[in-house]
Design a protein around this nucleic acid. Structure first.
Length: 287
DNA sequence: AAACCATTCAACCGCAAGCTC
DNA sequence: CGAGCTTGCGGTTGAATGGTT
């Protein structure tokens, strides 16, 4: 790891971008594509750090950026997503085509935060970063726990099942360790793209989660392989070979959490007036 | 018209995690 | 394997703009 170099090197411009700088940046992206921001300054002579270039491109120059006021539908979706995801602006923005995380963040801070507060004073927005699904317990053998953690790559969408029973991972100083469990919530959903959400809603994910046998999950090699490395796993459906195990076990705390999750998604996408996913999806959740 | 206040939004900063050597 | 580099994210800042007195 390491810290990114600051944009305070001598000779680098700061502040508002000029038309010329924008042009240079756009030319570079046209010919080289996005990324390689650090090379940009060297190759073009643009006196901006890579970080600044990326930001300018992502938030302003990108051709697919939607300008203009945020519609009521978008606004409602932002509120719902924020309720579910918290301040994960990039994830929220990912579900609003043409909108940037910065734009949504600004919009929220300047307008929606107040509005949301006014409308539901009791509603507690998910301000923490890890709010969605609680820790998943195995059958209490050895007090093992299974946490579903998000992939850090938004587009990778792999669900990492991590065995939390290793000594180094056990809750420090809390042998009985139930107090902090609720806080250690998992949030793999946070990294799902819109397509993944659609796939999730199209799958029998919820039904399978209801039947999941956690020990099977915990012990399955595919679920203990770090961030998967496979790259092409469907984040929703179980890995091949594991699927059969989904039908073999009993319910657990996972079931309730999974149901809560599905409920969240229902409220988020299906109860919205914008009909974002269409009413046809609803039938997937009916009994 | 001027001063003051509130709001908006582009840009910067620090941090974290992945990648590369 | 670890240090350094790059990229991406969320929080914050401050200039620009608009509204009010």
């Amino acid at each position: 790891m390491g810290r990114s170099p600051r944009c305070t090197k001598d000779g680098l411009n700061k502040g508002a971008w000029t038309a010329l700088e924008d042009e240079m940046l756009m030319d570079y992206v046209k010919s080289h594509g996005e990324g390689k921001w650090s090379n940009l300054a060297k190759e073009t002579g643009l006196k901006r750090c890579g970080k600044s270039c990326r930001l300018r491109w992502m938030n302003y120059l990108r051709p697919d950026i939607k300008r203009g006021n945020i519609s009521e539908d978008e606004e409602e979706l932002i509120i719902r997503l924020h309720k579910l995801l918290g301040n994960r602006w990039s994830l929220i923005a990912g579900r609003l085509p043409g909108r940037t995380d910065n734009e949504i963040k600004n919009y929220w801070n300047s307008y929606l935060a107040k509005k949301s507060k006014d409308q539901s004073p009791l509603a507690k927005p998910a301000t923490e970063k890890k709010p969605i699904i609680g820790l998943l317990h195995s059958n209490d053998q050895h007090n093992d726990k299974v946490a579903v953690e998000p992939s850090t790559n938004t587009n990778m969408n792999l669900v990492k099942i991590i065995n939390k029973s290793s000594p180094s991972e056990s809750s420090a100083g809390s042998p009985q360790s139930t107090a902090g469990e609720e806080e250690k919530t998992a949030d793999f959903l946070l990294d799902l793209s819109a397509e993944d959400l659609c796939r999730m809603l199209d799958s029998d994910f919820a039904a399978k989660l209801n039947d999941v046998e956690l020990n099977d999950v915990n012990n399955h090699p595919a679920m203990n392989a770090g961030d998967g490395g496979g790259g092409d796993h469907n984040p929703v459906l179980p890995p091949e070979g594991l699927e059969n195990n989904y039908n073999s076990g009993t319910g657990s705390e996972l079931c309730g959490q999974a149901n809560n999750m599905v409920s969240d998604f229902r409220s988020l996408f299906l109860e919205s007036d914008d009909g974002w996913l269409g009413n046809d999806i609803d039938i997937l959740f009916s009994d």
